[in-house]
Amino acid sequence: MIRLLAFALLVWPICAAAETAATTQARAAAAELETAAEMLDKAEGARDRVMALTETIQAFEKGLGAMRDGLRQAAINEAQLSKKLQSRDGEVAQLFGVLQSIGGNPSPTAFLHPDGPVGTARAGMLLAELTPALNRQANALRRDLEDVQTLRLLQVDAAERLQAGLTQVQAARTALNQAMANRTELPTRFTADPVRTAILIASTETLDGFASGLAEIITDEVEPAPVTLQGRIGELPLPVQGLVLRRAGQADAAGVKRPGIIMATRARAIVTSPAAATIRYTGPLLDFGNVVILEPEARTLFVLAGLDVVYGEAGQVIAGGTPIGLMGEKDARQAAESGTSLSPDREGTGTDRTETLYIEVRRDNIPQDPEAWFRTEKDE
């Protein structure tokens, strides 16, 4: 009995704390998704629908990420608590047996003791001392079982909210695609010559060579507006929500080292311009997939490679935070078909971030460390 009581006193505070943390996290994530849904409704009638939809999608991505994390934590806590309870089935049965014998109707023989009246008195005193402890242990076990039920209900609710959020964010992305197609008011600094661009792509074997030849594809260039990053280097927002997967100069599995960083992102994540900039190039390039090259100030280029969908045209001047594309979703579609896209075992492990965005910064055509330009210590 003492062993049973020690178990109850040990396990209950841990389980209660874990359940509270998971519930709080899921509740906060649900609030973020509700806020994003409200933003989507407002974006439908917003004057600048592109920026409104961009903010909505970013809010959804943040809320969905938090909901995934909350769902995963709830599943972990529920599994741990259930495992602890299952491992002590025998002790629980003993406890219930003792409590039932205490709670039953006493018979005259229950007060008899082999040692006579003194033994009976001692047994009664011991029983009186143990009864409150046993009751407390029973209450603790009952709360543990209630916690398991709460966590299971939490997972069901979180999964439903997650699925609804995924549907809404897809609607927002579709609306953004249409809004970007209808946008015609962007100022233009220059016109890209398609023939020269094609020749440059065909003759280029490296990103370095392509970047150095960008000036050759420009016609009808207009004097650029005075844009500077002075005082903002090191504080620029990352163009996508994700995690730094590989740093500049760090070799990949094939031993290849690149001067940029690689961000691991979730499927269909929105990519935005870190600052006001001129689009120097958009489209496929070498083996990088779709590439967007931005010029935030003279002699400085941001190279973003690995996108699935790209927005804008070379020569257009865009504001900071303007969407420039979306990441792919091929792996996400495969996960959905196999039923693992909502699996809590995938969340928080990095396997849910199936896409990668390559980010390179070049000044005077010399690669710079992107982590010295962007805020990477607060990755989502």
Rank of each mutant, 00 (worst) to 15 (best):
Glu19His: 13
Thr20Arg: 13
Leu33Ile: 13
Leu33Asn: 04
Thr35Gly: 10
Thr54Asp: 03
Thr56Glu: 01
Glu61Trp: 07
Met67Trp: 04
Met67Thr: 07
Ala75Pro: 12
Ala75Arg: 14
Ile76Arg: 14
Ser82Pro: 02
Lys84Ser: 10
Lys84Gln: 08
Val92Ile: 10
Gly104Gln: 08
Pro117Ala: 12
Pro117Leu: 15
Arg122Phe: 14
Leu162Tyr: 08
Ala164Gln: 14
Ala164Val: 14
Gln168Trp: 02
Gln168Arg: 12
Ala172Trp: 03
Ala172Leu: 05
Thr191Gly: 03
Thr206Leu: 03
Gly213Val: 06
Leu214Cys: 03
Val222Asp: 02
Gln230Gly: 13
Arg232Phe: 10
Gly234Ile: 15
Asp252Gln: 12
Ala254Phe: 13
Lys257Gln: 06
Ala269Trp: 03
Thr272Cys: 12
Ala275Met: 02
Thr278Asn: 03
Phe288Glu: 02
Asn290Ser: 07
Val292Phe: 02
Pro296Ala: 00
Gly306Lys: 04
Val310Ser: 00
Ile318Thr: 01
Ala319Thr: 13
Ala319Met: 09
Ile324Pro: 04
Asp331Cys: 06
Ser341Arg: 15
Gly350His: 03
Glu355Asp: 14
Tyr358Lys: 10
Arg362Glu: 00
Arg362Gln: 06
Asp364Trp: 13
Asp369Leu: 10
Trp373Asn: 00
Thr376Val: 15
Lys378Ala: 15
